[in-house]
Structures are given as structure tokens and as C-alpha cells.
Amino acid sequence: MTTTTIAAPRSPRRLRGRTNTELYAWLFMRVSGVFLIVLVFGHLFVNLMVGEGINALDFAFVAGKWADPLWQVWDLLMLWLAMIHGTNGLRTVINDYAERDQVRMWLKMLLYVAAAFTIILGTLVIFTFDPCPAEAAAELLPSFCPGA
């Protein structure tokens, strides 16, 4: 009797060069999504529902918020999570619909440049913001500024 060796049906395929990037992207969308619901709903409630709503928004309103470290951290987290979440979403959409390699590559480059620009810009604004700029008209400044 001759024995034939048959490979086990579920022997692992070779996964050389493969990474779990897409798995982490998928997981990030879900985890960041939960955080963003809290961050964005809080942002919308405070800026659009409380008090005068949209009519209360001006430089003094923003300066008053960012005088509180809580809102600085809130807005910084919201900026980073929303931009990365949105950029990854748009990346998926581009991958789905842009069939030509060159078009797909350039659209994603444009997306990444726009995302990096806005994330860096927003971060710099939050960290270098001056609520009481010296040359500004006093009546436009928050009440805690000297001379306002």
C-alpha cells in the first residue's frame, strides 16, 4: 500500500510582504468614530444651541473658549481625529472609483497634502493663539483682556 501525502487543507498561505495596515485603518475608523460623536456633538451643542447660538460666534467667543485648556484639548483632539478619519474615508472612496493608476495616485497625493496642510495649520493656530492681540480694537476682544 502506497501512502500519498496530501497537504493539510488549511496550511497557511505565504503572507510575505503583507501588512495589517488596512486592518488598523478599519479599526481606527470605528474607534475614532465613537470619540468624534462625543467631540463633534459637544462642539455643535456649545456653538449652535447654547445661548445665542450661531449669532454669538465671534473672535471674543473663540478666545474665551480657548482660554480654557479643556477646549484647547477638545478642539485639538477633534481636529486630528476628524481629519484622519475623513482622510481615510476619502482614501477609500478614491481607491473605489479612480480606476487608472496615475489618476488614483495623484488624487491621493492631493488628499494627503491637503490633510497635512490643514492638520498642521489647525494645530499651530491652537498652540500659538493670542486672545489679546495688541494692535486689535479693544471692543472685539474678550472681556479678560487688559483694556477690553
Binding site: F59, M83, G89, T118, V125, A136
Partner: peptide, 30 residues
């Protein structure tokens, strides 16, 4: 979900840039 996501993303780009005007001057932000 796709359509709303794309719309929100483009608003977000605009909204970050317009908020960045607080760094230019109170007048331009207002």
C-alpha cells in the same frame, strides 16, 4: 454614509481654514 462623509470632509477643510483667521486678526475672523 459615503455622500454625507464626503460632504462633511470638504466642509471640515473650509472650517479649519476659516477658523485659522483668528490668528490673522479679530476683524478678519469676525
Amino acid at each position: 454614509h459615503r455622500v454625507t462623509g464626503i460632504g462633511i470632509f470638504f466642509f471640515l477643510l473650509v472650517h479649519i481654514v476659516d477658523t485659522a483667521l483668528v490668528r490673522v486678526s479679530p476683524e478678519s475672523y469676525n
